[in-house]
Amino acid sequence: MKTTNLFKAKNHRFTRILATASVALLSITMVACGDDDDNGNITPTPTPEQKGTVTLNYTHVWGNAGSASPELQLNTQLIHPGTKDTITVTKFKYYVSNLRFEKDGGEEWVEPESYRIVDVTDNALVALEIGNVPAGNYSSMSFIVGVDEERNYSGAQDGALSPTNGMFWDWNTGYIFLKVEGESPQHGGFQYHVGGFEGANNAIRTVSVSFSNGLTVGDNTTSNVNMYVNTARVWHGGLKVEDLGTFMMPDPRAVNIADNFQNAFLFDGVN
């Protein structure tokens, strides 16, 4: 899962080389990169200095109806739309990592050091600011809910990956990808600490979002991607609170929740 902040094909830096380098150097570079355009056409693309910001707006709701679903309120009794369980959520926290923005034709921008924690508190809306996105038109994006395998093996790390964020198991190395805690009158307290990056208990899941009308990133502008996150989806498929109990290590129940939560993200629009 090595990341690079260059376009994999037809990248911007490449275009600049075209404009400035000699023909001989150019041909060597092109052979070296192996990305020659078959038709010899150079598509005009913005210079690499043109970069914008994308704000990802995650609005956490309780239900699958987007804006028609109520916002997630912590510390409040909610009725699960499917199982009818009464559930009070006290904590809802997860990693969003390895962001990629893709263009039609497969060209993509991969954010370097892409690790953030979404922590739902009083506000159901959590906004993540993604800087230095090359200007252009994008058709889709993807991100991992959790932390890629490599960084679960990488020793001491800081920023969002610091173990002081409370999203790390100190006795059984690994990041907690999704932490959902709360209680229900029928069952009492519950803690779902979803993680695991190996074998059958691998809970790393990638979420892909298609922009129906595209996403334009301009130079020094901020674009918004708006999403609804259906937090009730954790208990999807008739999963009741008493079925899940509490778990704090890689576990088939964690895999179940990871599968559910992967489909909790509903694209709303861009602006």
């Binding site: 093996y153 001491a156 100190d170 006795w171």
Partner: peptide, 24 residues
């Protein structure tokens, strides 16, 4: 349980029957 030496100390530092000190 620990897969890297750099993060090993977190366990005894935080364990309530060892040093009992949150990393933070």
């Amino acid at each position: 349980g620990i897969n890297h030496i750099e993060i090993q100390p977190i366990a005894p530092l935080q364990d309530s029957s060892e040093m009992g000190m949150p990393l933070i």
